[in-house]
Design a binder for these strands. Structure first.
Lengths: 64, 64
DNA sequence: TCGTCCTGTCAAGTAACCTTGACATCGTGC
DNA sequence: GCACGATGTCAAGGTTACTTGACAGGACGA
């Protein structure tokens, strides 16, 4: 799974900590998602998609 | 979170065990998702959406 | 130089996801 | 009556997602 979180975050000029605050998670969680340490839960994926006004499929991509 | 898994599964005439086999998970997992015990991981949500040829947003709904 | 923000990462702990194995119940057909 | 498939649920265990707290390095401005 790859994602567009870093790109979308930087477009908005937010730090990882600031995005974490917007999403209700820690900055380490944002960092872990951006660096690919793990995938978000489905509820968090919905929160992220909603925040960036995109579909989950537009932000997260399965890498076969 | 609510989902349309049971409805989609029954449309196809599959048992929980048969759907589990199609998705690569156990029948208890399918049962737990249908009965709302927990939400799937994001990768499993993608697998389910792909299997039913729908978007994640069409199958899973956040209940505010 | 010093302070501050940002990022990356680690360690330790809790909660959620998913497993196998088991048992009970219900409906249907033989 | 007896199998059998389907569903619901439990227990115990492993892995993943997320937490707080901490430390280090780089960039930048005062």
């Amino acid at each position: 799974m790859q994602n567009e979180i870093r790109r979308l975050r930087e477009q908005r000029g937010l730090s990882q900590a600031a995005l974490g605050a917007e999403l209700g998670v820690s900055r380490q969680t944002v960092n872990s998602l951006e660096t690919g340490k793990y995938d978000p839960s489905l509820p968090l994926a919905f929160t992220i998609a909603r925040y960036f006004a995109r579909s989950i499929e537009e932000i997260f991509h399965v890498d076969d």
